[in-house]
Nucleic acid binder design. Sequence first.
RNA 1: GGGCGGGUAGCUCAGUGGUAGAGCGUCUCGCUUACAACGAGAAGGUCAGAGGUUCGAUUCCUCUCCCGCCCACCA
Length: 695
Amino acid sequence: MKVLPTKYDPKNIEDRIYKKWLPYLSVEKHKGTKNFIALMAPPNVTGSLHMGHSLQNTLLDVLIRYKRMNDYKIIWIPGLDHAGIATQNVVEKELKKEGLTRFDLGREKFIKRVWEWKEKYGNIILEQFKKLGISPDWSRTRFTMDKEYVKWVERAFIEYYKKGWVYRDYRAINFCPRCKTSLSDLEIEYIEKEGKIYYIKYPIKDSDEYLTVATTRPETMLGDVALAVNPNDQRYTKYIGRIAILPILNRELLIITDIKVDPKFGTGVVKVTPAHSIVDYEIGVRHNLEMIKVIDEDAKIVNVPEFENMDYLTAREKILSILKQKGLLEKEEDIKHNVPICYRCQTELQVIPSKEWFLKMTELAKIAKDAVKTRKVYIIPNRFKKIYFDWLKNIRDWCISRKIWWGQVLPVWYCKNCEDSYVVSTKKPNKRCKYCKKNQWYRTEEVFDTWFSSALWPFAILYTKKEKDWYPADIVFSARDIINLWIARMIYSGIFFMKKPPFKFVYIHPTVLTKEGKRMSKSLGTGIDPLDLIEKYGADALRFGLIWQTTNLQDLRFDETNVENGMKFANKIYNAIRFYLIRYPEMKKREGFSSEDKKIIRAFNSTLKYVSKNIENFQFSNALKRLYKFFWNHFCDVYIESCKGDTKNNPEVLRMIVINSLKLLHPFMPFITEYLWEEIGNRNLLLHEKWPQQI
RNA sequence: GGGCGGGUAGCUCAGUGGUAGAGCGUCUCGCUUACAACGAGAAGGUCAGAGGUUCGAUUCCUCUCCCGCCCACCA
């Protein structure tokens, strides 16, 4: 008999076991009688494994392995997201080291460069997923820029266009001056900053009176076209309909009313700048006001001669000094306010008018709301529904075009001669432009919002030529910060194109924070690298630690002690099996059961029931804790102890408990259980074993 | 400004209308032939604060205070 060392060392074992599984992970290799279909959130190609990925995929893998052992054929397709802006930024940073910008390379060469980068680094994260021990079908790995996938993206756009829900418009949008692209409402973050609010006097025409406007962005006054007050604000009733004079430029501004004006903020008088504020744009639409663009894509002033090409902050200073000179700056106050920044590069955003493509949200939002309301889709825990509904309730149309280079190109062709003439098509149109009558078209360079393609993920990967019956999935696991960015959009896209919601259950797992409750972040130095933990304690231990700590709360304060504990537990399992290997052959065969036998069988049965129920209900931590207690306390501390010396225990009970414990533990700690499964003499894979029945 | 989650042992967290639980940590004792990454045992909490409902509240209700998150964006 081979004698195992007394300490379990996961190092070499885990890689070897994973290689052993690898050929058996594809859908075809397991003959389950029912399908269980899960969606992996495709990680960004820029990413490397972080604790959030680890938690999400570990939990899903627990469920997957459990289902696989319960006679389900598992369809779990891994993939990568091209992550438009994020990836483009990473490659731009690479270029910067060479002293280059993407504009030096030009579009074509730059995109080639991103592909090279993707080929080289894109798969790293998937390799890291393997270290974690998750078990998707790697033979079907997908990428959101695969040819097939791009076809889906184009088709979706065209379908929406035919429906009349996709349109092009010139309007005020959020723009990142560094990434040089438009952004959707969900791609904006806010940081609180110390700033100043300036009170500026706007003289009333043909009088000595004036109205004072409070603003944090005086430079945008160059684009003012009106002043607005709340219709119910008694203080200003007498000014409504009169004309104010815009200082410096002396433009005449009509004084109007709008319900969006908050009488309690500032002076209750608002300068209306439809070109450079989303709210003002909407006021502008209601009152049919002109948009005067005075800030451009570089955050510089345009269309105003004396400020031409001046940075917006320099222009602000100049404007303030002129106002001071003229006695029109009433006062300035310190203020803490939220400044919008780009979610990918943290640059302060500008609102500028731009021609962009929009997806009308009215109907789609309704579709998404109904799906959850009528329980076609369940969001778990239930309270996260609110985030979903609140967003859908106040939704604006979705700006889906981006002015970056990395992404799927819109299937849109513009006329070379006429600015607003276009054709929506995947192929170059062969027809005359209705304005210039010429047949000269060029493909746009605009690409899709990366989330537009993510929204199609479920059917783009599940509904293929070969496998038409895989859509919809049963479940998706998600972080709570992308409930709207991703989950909501998948739901309405899926229903719109496939007539069925893309999944039945959305399980929202907690966000992994540091033990101190801080966000894990590389730049703050608060991140913990899961690969370090795997190196130190083993993947099973990391999985154990993560599952152990998972609750239904919003956050999880990660405590490494639990991973260490996982390592100890792995060692405990290992040594219990050693005991079995050494003692079982020596034990006397006997009929019937001792009282200890009966006790452990009862404990096992109730554990089995509890663990199964809790996995099904997404209570992974409860399941693991119960299993831990069963194995360590009931089995090791009591039952195994009772097997020593002159025991009356039936060795077959010991054997049964060993075998079935490995099975129950397998979804949680797959490596060590598979390894020990082989050590106790099995030739087949534990991966494909059946989940135990009551003994 | 609106909403959500949390405040229980030193730490991370369970939990219940009826004299508080786990893991880790701490302390004591044991290197007992699977495991010292172990075993046996112990200490440790006015369950954030105030009020209410109740025979009885950590658990239900109201308010307050702290911590975290989300949404709106302040012109």
